[in-house]
Nucleic acid binder design. Structure first.
Lengths: 211, 211, 211, 211
DNA sequence: CATGAATGAGTATTCATTCAT
DNA sequence: TATGAATGAATACTCATTCAT
């Protein structure tokens, strides 16, 4: 991730430049799309914010669309990273899940504009096979699933379909970040995470038993 | 100069026509926006589908934007209605909630394109104070909240903040319909509702007790 | 001009109706075009003002263009009439001219919107062979010219080309009504007429004699 | 992240280009509006005549309206210039006036389309406080008035209100150029100027006295 | 490499006119 | 005859993308 500067001989390798420029452009582009949406976002304006020529943006990203996807992509990658770091080395499944939920909500609390990108992607590119977010999610799926399976195996979680539990977890989180964004709620992510976990873990009925 | 003010009748103005035409246009418009998104939706194309002139569409809806909002609006109203009918007269809070969840998911199973409209509204009109969906939700809020309070009062639901429970419920459902839509999941709504309710009511941990 | 009501037998003759309706529509149409210009004038709006259906307007005037020309035409005809009445039976050429100038300016003082029509006609229909105004003017030309010739013959006016004098007279008046309109001057027409006649008759130089 | 703010120059911004392009576009635009009027003038067509893309026109003029006003403006400025040059350094008021009248009529003889622009401006933008022409005229007013006052003071022009004389002069000229344009008269401007001056200076009556 | 000038496809909206009732 | 619902041609303006400098 950190590009080592191979400036050994006379001319720095282009490879580096391209990567560097892209890294410079993307964060601004994310904020930019989040602010204006896709269609209303004028590349000229982005170029001005970046203090570069419009042509330069196009030099590093083939099309506006590619730039947008790269922005979403970078956001998702950072989300995955944040979660990975949070759960790194955690053995206990319940703690694992807890940490993951906190990391997820915390990430979007710190990067609210990334939610916008997800919405925009879906709204503008309705026919893409799978939105970026879900592509990544699929890749993480097996790994995360393991945690649930483990918890069930060790009896912490009652016997249920791990897949559906996991799906519901992630749907809920997804719904929460959307709704936070839509309604401009200001609940601290820490507190929100605890509430969610409480209900998910313990249910809402007094007599635990059956629905 | 000399002439009776009210002359021969001419074609009488059909007072119900406006309402009728709008009813004819809206369902098609909903599908249309859901298919193309807002910006990519060419009113000309909608007119062709409706087999009317473009001017006719504009005769009944001031602008494309107004048409879009009317489409979203109609969708939400139908959702609210569907839920209201489902819970009508149900006294028991748990049954009430159960019915509502089924109605909600069932509605979007039958009207998947309405999810698209919600997404599009948010993506295109990011600065609207509150998206249509949430405006309606707020209105229903107090009423739905009562159900949770009742359930807590009668001891069915353990003592918790009814507001946050309700929020989480609705966030989850919201996340579920979005995710269903995004990932084109084909889980029957009935089954999905049951899963959600099971987890919400009972939690996922075997030993109920600790957070 | 005053349509006699031939309502003798059962059904009134259509001829009358057509004329009557046109007479009802024209004055309103004149004001209407003067207010909005030609392109910005929406026939629908005119119809509303007249409290008739849009189709009715089209029943009596083939096209919007025809309606506009008819409006201009009616205005010009009224101008000519006003002048004719003013100079009727006046023998003395100087008095004749004086009366005509007063009548001309007085007419446009009372009917300022007709100036607008002249301007609009020219602006919108730049390629018409001769604007309505000038068609009428040509017809009056010979007759008015006679007055000048007479005045020259009898020595009141010094020997000059009667045609050019007359043209300049009319150009000046034309310029005056335009400028009055443009600059929204509020000089009473009586006074303005006198000023013009003073200068035209006597010139501005102290020593009268040669150019 | 590490990068010098000012990178390789790239294509330098040509500061004079904007001015140059506007100069190139305006004359064609003037002819174009004069030919079609405002509403009938399709910017696409203008672009074709200029052999540039439509976007280029819009790059240098915000809107069609702005382009039109700029055209009128440029015309008027050239008129004022032409007159200023003609009267430069002329002391004698009568000669001054004479030169000015010649310059005025000569200008419109050479630039007949500018008359059209004045008419169009009035017809299309009826509610503008003061048409461009009159804005400029006001600015020149005081200066021109001085000439008349001088002539009266030195006794060349008989005692009269200098303001009304000047107004009538300019109204007449205005009427003349309009009428020339409308009726497509082909009188050489030199001759026309002389005629006007003859009548204005000397009047038309044989016995000079007063009306 | 970097730039920004040029381009033209794409689209909402208006309104004169028609014609069924 | 009177009406007004329906129509679709017409057009300003935006902005992604290209490419000469």
């Amino acid at each position: 991730m950190v590009s080592v500067d191979k400036r050994v001989a006379g001319r720095p390798r282009d490879e580096t430049l391209v990567a560097r420029r892209r890294e410079e452009i993307l964060p601004e582009a994310s904020l930019f799309f989040a602010e204006f949406g896709y269609r209303n976002a004028d590349v000229q304006v982005l170029a001005e914010r970046l203090k570069v020529g419009k042509g330069t943006v196009y030099r590093y990203f083939e099309t506006k669309e590619a730039l947008f996807f790269a922005s979403v992509d970078a956001g998702i990658r950072r989300l995955i990273e944040a979660i990975d770091i949070a759960v790194e080395g955690i053995e206990d499944p319940v703690v694992h899940i807890t940490k993951a939920v906190h990391a997820y909500l915390g990430f979007f609390e710190r990067n609210p504009h990334i939610v916008e990108l997800l919405i925009i992607e879906r709204a503008e590119f309705r026919d893409r096979e799978q939105a970026t977010y879900f592509q990544y999610k699929e890749r993480q799926h097996e790994y995360r699933l393991e945690v649930f399976k483990q918890a069930i195996a060790q009896g912490t979680i009652r016997p249920m379909d791990p897949d559906r539990v996991m799906r519901l977890f992630s749907d809920t989180l997804y719904g929460v970040i959307f709704t936070n964004n839509f309604s401009r709620r200001q609940v601290p992510s820490e507190k929100q995470a605890e509430e969610i976990l409480d209900i998910f873990f313990n249910g809402i009925l007094r007599e635990t038993g059956q629905a």
